Simulated scan of single mutants.
Amino acid sequence: MQPIILASASPRRAELLTQIGLSFHARPVDIDETPREDESPSAYVERLAREKAIAGASDPGQIVIGSDTSVVLGGDILGKPANPGEAEATLGRLSGRTHQVLTAVALATGGQCFTRLVITDVTFRELCPEEIRAYIASGEPMDKAGSYGIQGLGGIFVKEIRGSYSSVVGLPLQETATLLAQAGYPVWKVWQRSLESHNE
């Protein structure tokens, strides 16, 4: 089967691909992530996922996966915080409210690129100032869209999630597997057949 490239430095995306049994090489790419004028959040994340996948494709025989995640509240994209004060302000805005996490995954192979967009509603409980400051002091929010990680300490803030958990972490697994299957790479074919080996 073709080699798989993950066009990302994200350890969370790497963990998710490993979770579904894939072997891959991580190849981070550097693209301009500035939103375009009048670009909607959904168009923005799909464009970045596509650009990452295409930028990571050095050989048409490879399968390259790109992904991008944005946290959106009231139409505003809440990116990674530039400093602790920005993280505090973002978490204060998310407190007690429902926001959307938009994650796009793109797959580039054979000179073509296909994308899927997943939108998940996440509701935070009311947060007190002391726990927001303690969370920021932990350092966890500083490299994450929306200033929180659902798979880490920030998971205690989440009251409800409607949609894809893996998408909120950074890579929608069902949609990724669908794209891989469409590219002739169904993930279940690479799973270890431990029971068959045991019975031989």
Rank of each mutant, 00 (worst) to 15 (best):
Q2C: 10
L6P: 00
A7W: 04
S8R: 00
A9V: 13
S10L: 06
F24E: 06
D32C: 09
E33C: 01
D38F: 10
S40I: 09
P41C: 03
A43H: 10
Y44L: 12
Y44Q: 07
E46C: 09
E46R: 12
R47T: 03
R47E: 03
R50L: 15
I54V: 15
A55L: 12
G61I: 07
T69Q: 01
T69F: 03
L73P: 04
G74C: 04
K80I: 00
N83F: 07
G85L: 10
E88H: 08
T90W: 00
T90A: 06
L91D: 01
G92E: 03
R93M: 02
L94R: 09
V101N: 03
V101M: 01
L102M: 05
T109C: 15
F114C: 09
T115Q: 06
V122E: 11
R125I: 15
C128R: 14
P129F: 08
E130K: 12
E131G: 13
R133C: 08
G139M: 12
E140M: 02
K144S: 08
G146N: 07
S147G: 05
Q151N: 08
L153D: 12
G155F: 05
E160W: 06
I161Y: 09
S167A: 12
V169F: 00
A177W: 02
A177T: 05
L179I: 07
K189L: 10
V190E: 12
L195Q: 13
E196L: 10
E196Q: 10
S197C: 09
